[in-house]
Design a binder for these strands. Sequence first.
DNA 1: TATGAATGAGGTTTCATTCAT
DNA 2: TATGAATGAAACCTCATTCAT
Lengths: 209, 209, 209, 209
Amino acid sequence: MGPETATSAARGVAPPTGRRNRDADVVAAAINVFWRKGYADASVQDLADEVGVLKGSLYHYIESKEALLMRVFDLAHEQAQETIDYAAALDVPPLERVRRYFERHVRWYLDNIEHASVFFREWRSLTGPNLQTVKRRRRSYARFIGGMIEECRLAGATAPGVDSRIVLVYVLSAVNAAPDWYRREGPDDAGTIAAAYADFVVGTLVGAA
Amino acid sequence: MGPETATSAARGVAPPTGRRNRDADVVAAAINVFWRKGYADASVQDLADEVGVLKGSLYHYIESKEALLMRVFDLAHEQAQETIDYAAALDVPPLERVRRYFERHVRWYLDNIEHASVFFREWRSLTGPNLQTVKRRRRSYARFIGGMIEECRLAGATAPGVDSRIVLVYVLSAVNAAPDWYRREGPDDAGTIAAAYADFVVGTLVGAA
Amino acid sequence: MGPETATSAARGVAPPTGRRNRDADVVAAAINVFWRKGYADASVQDLADEVGVLKGSLYHYIESKEALLMRVFDLAHEQAQETIDYAAALDVPPLERVRRYFERHVRWYLDNIEHASVFFREWRSLTGPNLQTVKRRRRSYARFIGGMIEECRLAGATAPGVDSRIVLVYVLSAVNAAPDWYRREGPDDAGTIAAAYADFVVGTLVGAA
Amino acid sequence: MGPETATSAARGVAPPTGRRNRDADVVAAAINVFWRKGYADASVQDLADEVGVLKGSLYHYIESKEALLMRVFDLAHEQAQETIDYAAALDVPPLERVRRYFERHVRWYLDNIEHASVFFREWRSLTGPNLQTVKRRRRSYARFIGGMIEECRLAGATAPGVDSRIVLVYVLSAVNAAPDWYRREGPDDAGTIAAAYADFVVGTLVGAA
DNA sequence: TATGAATGAGGTTTCATTCAT
DNA sequence: TATGAATGAAACCTCATTCAT
C-alpha cells in the first residue's frame, strides 16, 4: 500500500507539507472514520480522536459534521472529474474510450477504497443544498457515460437489441460496487480487476446475446 | 406450549377478530420508514407514527429497534431462499438456470423495491450476532450463485478467459443495485428490466470479449 | 501523546483557576442524593440538580449513574482501609486493638452518616464487576476483623464458649447499623456513642455469660 | 427447610387450601421477588411471572405495586406482634423475658429469611400513609423492647454504666441484620444461632465492662 | 376471572455544537 | 490556535397502570 499507514491510507491528498496541512488531515481522517463506522454512527469525538485534537478544537477546521462529509464528496468529485476529462480528451474509437474510462475509473476506486466507499454509501446522509449538489453531479456523471454509450450505439458497435438506458445503470451498478468487494490483500491486484471490469463493460455493450 | 409462540401464549383460541396481525404491519412500516429515512436516521417515534401507535406501545411488538431491522432481514431472507430453491430445482442447462435465477431474483427486487433497498443498504447497521447471521447468509447466497457459474464453466458454456470469482462479484453488484435505480413510474416495466438484466448476466458469462 | 493521558491531554499547565474540583463536588452530591432518595429512586436529573448543572452536562464527570455510585464506594473504601491500617499498626494487646478499631470505625460512620448509610444500603444496586469488587472488599474487611477476634481468643481473652464466627457477624451487624439510628441532633455526641459501641463489642467478646 | 420448595419457602402463609389461595400466593411471590431483585428493581412483570399469571391479571389481586409491598409488611407485622404478645405474657424475671423474646425473634428471622430481609431492607420504598404506618410500628416495637430493658435495669440486673437507649439500638441492630448474614446451608442451624444471639443480648445488658 | 394491547410519563444516555478562557 | 466545560435536544427503552374484550 505504499508508505502511508493503514489508518491514513485513504487520503489521496498530498502529504503534509512539513508544517501544517490540517485541512487535508481532517478530510483524510473523516474518510477513514466514516468508512469504518458509517457517517451516522461516527461521532465528532471519533473524528477528533482520529485527527488527534480535542472535540472542540475540531471546529476550527470544520463548520459542521455534514460540511465535513461534503468536503469528502467535493474531493471525490474533483478526482472523478479528472477521469472524465481524461476520457473526453482521448482520440480513440467510442468503445475504446469506454474501456479506458472504466479501467481508470475502477482503478481509482480500488486505489481509494475507503474514499470510494464513503462516496457511494453516504450521499443519502447529506441534506438540503449539499444533497442537491451531489445528486446533480451524479446525474452529470451518468449523462457523460450515457453519452459515451450512445456514441457506441450510433457507431454500430453495440449489439442490436441493447437498450442504452438499461445497460447504463447495469454497468454503473456493477462498477460502483467494486470497492465493496475488493480486498487489498486478495489474490487479484487492482490493475487486473480494473482491466477485467472494463472488459466486462465492453462485453455487456457488444455481446449481450 | 402447543403450536403458538412463547410471546403469544394464548390458550389455543382463535385470535380475537379485533386483533389484526400487527406483527406484519410493523414490519411493513419498518420497511417503509427505513427506506425513506435510513435506519440510523429513523427514530422509534417515526416507526410508531407509521404504525399508528404510541412510541411505548411499539415495544409490544418489537424487542428493540435493531431486532425490528433484523426481522426485515429475516423476511427478505425467506424470500431470497425461495428463489434459490426454485432455481436449484430446475431441470435445465446451467446457463439457463443462471438466466432464470437472475430473472426471478431481479423481479423480486423490482416488485419490492423498498424491501430490497433496505436489504442491501442497511445490513451494516446490524451488530453482534445479527450482523454475523446476515454476513453468513450473504456468503451462502454467493456460494450458491458461484456454484451455478462454476457449473457453466465446467459445461464449457463460458468464455475462455472468464474468472469465476470476478464475474461473480461483477454480476452480483450489477443486479443487487437494481432497486437503487429502478423507478416504478419509469418507462420500462419490471418484467422487461428483469429479463434484460438476466440477459446481461448471461452475456457477461458467455460473451466477455 | 506524551505523558498525559488521552482524555486529559493538557499541556502540563496548572488547572485554570476558574475550574473547581467538580469531581469531588459530584461525589458529594451523589452521596447526598443517594442518601435522601435511595439509588434506585434518584434520577440523573436529581443528581444534576444537586450539582447545579444540566443533566447532559453531568456526563462530563461521570460515565454512568452506576459508575458514580461506585465512586462513592471507592471513596468509602479508601477511608475504611485507613482505619484498618491504623488498627493493624497499633502495638497493643488484642482486645485493646479491637476496641480502638471499632471506636474509630464507628466514629467514621457517625461523622459521615450519609456516606456510611449509602455504603451499607446500596451495594446491592451495583452490578457485574463493581458488585464483585465490593463483595470482595467486604469479605476482606470481615477477614481482618475476624483475625483480630481470633487473636483475642488465642490470647485467652474471650469467654470460653464464644464462637468467633457468630460473634463476628453479631458485632459487625450492630456496629454497621449505627448510621441508621444516630441522629446528629440527638442527646449523645458521636464520641460518646463510638466509645460505648466499642465497649459493647469488647463486652460481647469477653462477657458472654 | 421443611416441605416447601426453595422458591416458595418464604411464605409463612398457610398452604393453598386446595382450590384457591391466590392472595397468599401473591404475597409469597412478592416476598421472593422483592428479596431477589429489590423492590425498586422488581417489575410487575417479574411478580406476574412468579405468580404465573399475566401482568394485567395481577391487578385483580393487587391494587398497586406499593400496596403489595405493604401487604408484605402487614404480614410481617402480624407475626412480629405474635412474638411480642408471647414475650409479654411470660411470667419470668426481666432478663429471662428478654432472652426468650430475642431467641424467638431471631428464630423467626432465620426461618423466614426472605420475608425478614424485605421487612428490614425495603421499608424506605413505601410512601405516604404506608410509610407512616410502618414507622409507627417500628417505634412501637422499639418501645416494647426498650421497656423490657428498662425493667431489667430497674430490677438491678444490668451493668451499672449501661445507657438503655444506646444498648437498645445496639442489640436491635445486631439482631435485625441476622437475615443478612445467615445462610441456610451454613454450618450452624437456626436454633443454635438464635440461642447464641439471645445470649449475646443478655451479655450486652449484664456484662458490659 | 383473565387477557394483552395500549398508554404516557419517565428513565439513562449520547451528541453536535458553542463559548469563555 | 486550542481547550474542555456546558448546553439542550433527542435518542432508545422501561414500566406501572388501565381497559375493552
